[in-house]
């Protein structure tokens, strides 16, 4: 390390990494500080804690039926996660354990559909929901998101590591196929489920565009939509919004710090 060029290179690396770390963390700091400032102070760029925190919290809580909003958010994210995991893991198990030429073709078709952008689906989906008369209901939000091709793909990849001899042993032990899935596959694959839970919960919790389209009344709004609504006004009250942003970020942030390794595993799962 006595080489001066190497030394400069190393210093440069640290400098850039520090800058990146600062840029990455600063908005979080800004969010927390902002929550304690008045909107005017935030827009003026005041970077020190102020005294408006309680005020902002009260305003935020009163701007919506907060109990209802939180209930909506947790219900949609939670139920959506459970259903997605169930449907996707069954499909992943089915595609990997029961190979057939025809099913391989179907799976290939699914992979192609992975590149269909949501933008191309939202109009017909909206019209479909209108026909089914379920606009502004929980079902309307949940139904299109349950069969996630990405998660099916993730489970199929993970299932490749599931020893097929376990299934054989279970068959000889007299288990029916659904019992094998329930009593052998699910417990053996629990870390895959844990990782998938994190990604799916995150995606559902942060979901914006589709709920924005199908959820139309205030009492159906999720936390994400509530914060967006506050931000969309002509004179947004940034102090209140920051409180909302913290509330919207906190669950995922907590999950991240509690399960950092699983979290990353979840993100990576599909490319392994």
């Amino acid at each position: 390390m006595s080489n001066p060029i190497a030394l400069i290179g190393r210093a440069g690396t640290y400098l850039l990494l520090s800058l990146a770390a600062f840029v990455s963390i600063f908005p979080f700091f800004w969010m927390v500080v902002g929550a304690s400032n008045t909107s005017a102070d935030i827009i003026r760029g005041k970077g020190t804690p102020g005294g408006a925190l309680w005020d902002n919290i009260v305003k935020f809580v009163n701007s919506f039926d907060m109990v209802r909003v939180l209930f909506n958010s947790f219900l949609l994210a939670g139920l959506g996660t459970v259903l997605t995991l169930l449907v996707a893991s069954m499909a992943g198990y089915g595609f990997e354990m029961f190979r057939s030429r025809f099913r391989e073709k179907v799976f290939g078709g699914l992979l192609l559909m992975l590149s269909i952008p949501f933008a191309a689906l939202m109009i017909p989906l909206f019209m479909l929901m209108a026909q089914l008369k379920i606009i502004n209901t929980y079902q309307a939000v949940l139904l299109p998101s349950i069969a996630s091709i990405f998660i099916i793909f993730y489970f199929r990849q993970a299932t490749k590591a599931f020893p097929s001899e376990l299934r054989d042993a279970a068959k000889i032990d007299g288990l029916k196929e659904w019992q094998i899935f329930l009593y052998v596959y699910m417990p053996v694959m629990r870390s895959t489920y844990a990782a998938a839970t994190i990604i799916v919960f995150m995606a559902n919790w942060n979901s914006y565009l589709w709920p924005l389209i199908v959820l139309q009344t205030n009492e159906m709004k999720t936390l994400t939509l509530a914060v967006a609504t506050l931000a969309a006004g002509y004179t947004p009250d940034f102090g209140v919004i920051m409180v909302g942003a913290i509330a919207a970020t906190l669950p995922t942030l907590i999950i991240f710090f509690l399960l950092q390794r699983r979290f990353v595993e979840g993100m990576l799962g599909a490319v392994k």
């Binding site: 990146a20 994400t224 914060v227 942003a245 919207a248 995922t252 942030l253 990353v264």
Partner: peptide
């Protein structure tokens, strides 16, 4: 550096 992708899209846009 990883932390930003934990934030909700709406929250970070507003920030």
């Amino acid at each position: 550096i990883f932390l930003p992708c934990v934030t909700s899209l709406v929250a970070y846009s507003v920030i």
